[in-house]
Design a protein around this nucleic acid. Structure first.
Lengths: 75, 75
DNA sequence: TGGGATTTGTTCGTATGTATC
DNA sequence: TGATACATACGAACAAATCCC
């Protein structure tokens, strides 16, 4: 499951949706892959991957620590 | 009043603060200057000015319409 | 103490897309 | 049609925080 440039939905929103889905299904726990890794895996720019993390952070799905990475929040 | 690159506060936040202040003091009503104009006036990149508008939009200070511009919200 | 690697954050410039006038 | 304006995306560079050795 990855991003589709032909979809009308912006790439950074698509990527946020994908990651959120993985978290909700329990496929992704603990540490979220780095921005660089996410960008490479999905074929997008790092700036685009970063925007996806901002969405997930703002909605409370993950916590982000500069220099360490992003982590899935436990409720 | 403009932005200061030597301040630790990010430029896009400084710019958002400046515009919000102008709105609160009644110095800025109706239409907010375009992203291009804001960028030129404050000596920042358009991407930086755009991020400032996103902040003001997300906090409900302005409304943004693609192709038209940004507008101060009346309460 | 220090240096290097990793990672997120900010900023710039540019290009393209989409909507409005 | 053309001009204007916001939105998305890319690539690059640098800063700041963290971690490990």
């Amino acid at each position: 499951m990855t991003v589709d440039p032909d979809e009308p939905t912006p790439l950074y929103i698509q990527l946020a949706n994908i990651i959120r889905g993985q978290i909700e299904r329990g496929e992704l726990t603990g540490r979220v892959p780095s921005i660089k890794t996410l960008a490479q895996q999905h074929g997008v720019a790092m700036g685009t991957a970063e925007r996806a993390l901002v969405i997930l952070r703002d909605e409370g799905t993950i916590t982000v620590v500069v220099g360490r990475g992003a982590f899935v929040k436990r409720h």
